[in-house]
């Protein structure tokens, strides 16, 4: 019976399996494992890289947003200041104009009053002259002495008071 044979021919098994392990290590397990390792490393590298870039982008975005907010605030401040200054300037101008107008009005009034007074004075003298002339015509004598003029003036003042 040569069915349950266990003899020195077992060496062939060691040789065969050794050869097969050597070959498969060289052509199958070695290169494929290397390829799988490389690929998984590449994938994890890519993911890491993407995450880093994402973080960076987020940070940059936050920075920009902060800067934008700051700029907006600054612009608002400048605008407010300008508005305030404008308002002040406007009020100042208005005030100045008002004062000018008031001054001019006062001056005009003064001028008008002075004109009126001068006119009244002129009129009064005219009337006095006329009165003197009329009186001298009536009395057929010259009435141009100082005494006569004073008399007429006193009369006129009386009239004015009554008017």
């Amino acid at each position: 019976m040569d069915i349950l044979n266990l003899n020195w021919e077992i060496i062939w098994v060691f040789i065969n399996l050794g050869i097969l392990v050597f070959i498969l290590k060289k052509v199958l397990f070695g290169p494929v494992t290397k390829m799988l390792d490389e690929r998984s490393k590449e994938i994890s590298d890519t993911i890491d890289d993407a995450n880093t870039k994402m973080d960076e982008a987020l940070k940059t975005k936050e920075e920009y947003e902060a800067q934008l907010l700051q700029a907006k605030k600054e612009a608002q401040t400048i605008l407010d200041e300008a508005k305030k200054r404008g308002q002040k300037e406007y009020e100042l101008q208005i005030e100045k104009a008002r004062q000018d107008i008031a001054r001019m009005q006062a001056a005009a009034q003064q001028q008008a009053e002075a004109d009126r007074a001068a006119m009244l004075e002129g009129a009064r003298q005219e009337i006095a002259m006329l009165a003197l002339l009329a009186a001298s015509k009536v009395s057929q004598q010259n009435m141009n002495s100082d005494a006569d003029r004073a008399l007429v003036n006193a009369f006129l003042a009386e009239v004015e008071e009554q008017a």
Binding site: V13, V27, E42
Partner: peptide, 28 residues
């Protein structure tokens, strides 16, 4: 050389050929 060894050689040749065919020209 026992018959099992000869068959093993045939199998080794077949497995090697298959492995070479599967893994030649590997790409990313």
């Amino acid at each position: 050389v026992p018959e099992s060894t000869v068959v093993s050689w045939i199998l080794i040749a077949a497995i090697t050929a298959l492995a070479l065919w599967l893994t030649h020209n590997m790409k990313k």
